[in-house]
């Protein structure tokens, strides 16, 4: 920091200020310090509310280490049957739920677009979207398991329901952002409502709908690994059992499979989206 750095030092320019302060982000000093104080107070209280049982954590360290090292020696075979079954359930429920969800989402999405639907239909469809988006998949899965019993059918229903909210919302926003001129041009030809949707709306929305569907397929697979925890089938159930029994080798195997499938599906959906556009 010394020596050569100083050699080319500037001289003070007479008559000019020698200090400068960057204008603060919040102009009022009072508000600024109040904000600092609030953040500090939150951190103190928030961190204070975290009660840590240090002896339990201490005991956990070897288990954590065992889990990490399990990633380098994953055990695909001793629970091979369970893993295979769970994977089958996850993949089949992902595919069927995505397809069913999209089929249902298209009418709901059209209905939730302000420029296409009459007011009562709009309100009803928006309500469906809001309900589906507000709850985590796992909460919905609990309800469906209570209704149709344990197994992948509950998972299928859960993922379909979540897909409807996700796709319908984005689809509706897309339709609302449509290029007005193209829409008007087709309407001016005297087309019926269905023809109008088919010729003016569909071509503009289709490429993005395909992209969204692939994205949702990806999300549904990840979620299918979770909802098994509450009995809705899929590889999550296998994972849950393995972790409960401290079988970290098998758990690591399942996690590696999930990561691999997610990576492959991201790569494939990226390629397909590029191809569609």
């Amino acid at each position: 920091m010394s020596g050569p750095r100083q050699t080319a030092a500037l001289a003070v320019a007479p008559g000019y200020p020698t200090t400068w302060k960057r204008p603060p982000f919040i102009a009022s000093a009072a508000w600024r310090y109040a904000l600092y104080a609030a953040v500090l107070a939150y951190l103190v209280v928030g961190l204070g509310s975290v009660e840590v049982n240090w002896t339990r954590v201490w005991e956990g360290i070897p288990r954590g280490w065992a889990f990490l090292s399990a990633f380098f020696s994953p055990d695909f075979t001793s629970r091979g049957g369970d893993i295979w079954l769970g994977l089958q359930e996850s993949l089949t429920m992902t595919l069927t739920a995505t397809v069913a969800g999209i089929l249902l989402a298209i009418p709901v999405g059209v209905g939730a677009a302000r420029n296409l639907a009459p007011a009562p239909v709009y309100a009803a469809c928006r309500a469906v979207v809001a309900l589906s988006r507000s709850f985590q998949e796992i909460v919905i899965a609990i309800l469906f398991v209570a209704m149709v019993g344990f197994g992948p059918l509950a998972g299928f229903l859960t993922l379909s329901f979540a897909t409807v909210g996700f796709i319908a919302k984005l689809l509706a926003e897309d339709i609302e952002d449509l290029d007005e001129r193209q829409v008007e041009a087709v309407r001016a030809t005297g087309a019926s409502w269905l023809q109008w949707v088919n010729y003016a709306v569909q071509p503009q929305v289709m490429p993005r709908l395909i992209g969204l569907s692939l994205y949702r397929l990806d999300i549904n697979f990840r979620e299918s690994a979770v909802i098994g925890i509450v009995g809705a089938g899929g590889i999550g159930a296998t994972l849950n059992t393995a972790i409960d029994r401290y079988e970290f080798d098998s758990a690591a195997a399942v996690l590696l499979i999930i990561i691999a499938i997610v990576m492959v599906s991201e790569y494939v959906s990226g390629a397909v989206r590029k191809w569609v556009q």
């Binding site: 030092a9 003070v12 320019a13 007479p14 020698t18 400068w20 960057r22």
Partner: peptide
């Protein structure tokens, strides 16, 4: 290039540099 990292991070440049910047 003439000022250490911490001074530049805190925007505390030497008086000569600041006055020359104004000039």
């Amino acid at each position: 290039g003439y000022v250490g990292f911490w001074r530049s991070l805190l925007r505390r440049f030497p008086p000569a540099a600041v006055s020359q910047a104004f000039a």
